[in-house]
Simulated scan of single mutants.
Amino acid sequence: MVDRQTKPLAIALMGPTAAGKTDLAMALHHHLNAEIISVDSALVYRGLNIGAAKPSAAELAAVPHRLIDIRDPAEPYSAADFCKDATHEITNIVAAGRTPLLVGGTMLYFKALLEGLSDMPASQPAVRAQIEQEALAIGWPGMHQHLMDIDPETARELHPNHSHRISRALEVYRISGKTMSHFRANSGSGLLDSYQWVQLAVAPRDRAVLHQRIATRFENMLDAGLLGEVEALYRRGDLHPDLPAIRAVGYRQVWEYLSGEIDRSEMVARGVAATRQLAKRQLTWLRGWPDLCWIDTQNASGDLLEVDEIVNKALSFLPQRPI
């Protein structure tokens, strides 16, 4: 067996939305011989900038991020796509003598990359259409309850209105007779044993602090032009709410506002609530994550730490490697 210390170092930086992952990653980039790989299901799409909290053009010029702006919003991007692309990028970064720094909040992508993807059945349009017909009759929360009866482990990871993933989990079961959690438990080999992974999670320990950051950030996004950004996507004519890009938190709620389904105040309330729900799901994933090093962004008095203090905490978890 290869000794863990002889394996190339790779860093995974996770955390809930609005916790400060991107700022920390860019600061770490300056301290380490590292290159950043984005692990975010919204940042892969071109045109999703403000609402996805994409680094600015100036920031990306100074600190390049891989796997950003690689798909048109009309083209869905899957966990399997991410695993293929991320594996390629990690290999190239290590071959160049640098350290891959994977940063983001899409926990499913991290899990698939580290633990491997299972051999789940391919989608069958007829089965999916039947599921969507049933959802029209009883709603996605009702379908979520069906999934809870069949596969509680998967259902507990999903919001009752996460139509795409609920539909896929039910589809997998109806096609194969096996649950999605069964396939995951018997997944193929991932990259966990191929590198010396340091897995970090950054978040304030006080949930109220995170909630306030979420509310403030959503208002700042609106001030920065989020409505215009989504309107440009809306006017394209080839996009619709069932696409993963348009279902992204924030975009879905603004889309509903632009289509006249809700007013502006409801859009803001739903956008903030959806972001808080996303953060809750991310934290639920992280609490059960093995070998995770937590970086608390608050001091003993509850005040937020300065960036340099957070960076030093992160650096303290990295191994001392021979030169």
Rank of each mutant, 00 (worst) to 15 (best):
I36S: 07
L191W: 06
A86F: 00
V39E: 03
L60W: 03
A74P: 09
H182R: 02
G15E: 06
L239T: 07
H88I: 08
H211L: 02
V103S: 00
V44L: 05
H88V: 10
A122R: 01
R168D: 04
A18P: 10
P290Q: 11
R156C: 13
E75Q: 13
L210D: 02
H182K: 07
A112G: 03
L304Y: 07
V198E: 08
H30V: 12
Q196G: 09
V94S: 02
S78Y: 06
I262G: 01
S301V: 08
L210F: 01
M221W: 06
Q196E: 13
V311N: 02
H146E: 14
H65C: 06
K111I: 11
W289G: 01
Y77N: 08
H182G: 05
I246W: 05
L226Q: 11
R270E: 11
S259E: 11
P16S: 12
E59T: 12
H88M: 11
D291A: 15
R281F: 14
K54I: 03
L278R: 11
L113D: 01
S181Q: 02
Y257R: 03
V230Y: 07
M26C: 03
N299G: 15
K84S: 14
A126S: 14
R247P: 11
P241H: 02
S78C: 02
L305C: 13
S78Q: 08
D206Q: 14
I175S: 11
T106H: 00
L117H: 00
C293V: 07
W285I: 03
T22Y: 11
M148C: 12
Y45W: 04
H30I: 05
A19L: 09
A42L: 12
A248N: 08
V44C: 15
M1Y: 08
N220H: 13
K178G: 07
E171F: 09
A58M: 05
A185H: 15
R287A: 13
D242L: 07
E35V: 10
H88A: 14
G288V: 09
D3N: 06
S118I: 05
R276F: 04
L292E: 05
R184I: 10
H29D: 13
L102K: 02
V311D: 10
A169H: 03
I70C: 13
S123H: 03
H164A: 15
A25M: 12
D303A: 14
T17S: 15
G250R: 09
L13G: 11
I138H: 08
W294L: 11
A273R: 09
H30S: 15
L158Y: 01
A62P: 04
N92M: 00
W289L: 09
P73S: 02
T284W: 10
L233H: 06
I166M: 04
L233A: 07
V44R: 03
D193V: 05
D303H: 11
A274H: 02
I68C: 10
L60H: 04
K84L: 13
A112R: 00
Q5W: 00
L147C: 04
A18Q: 07
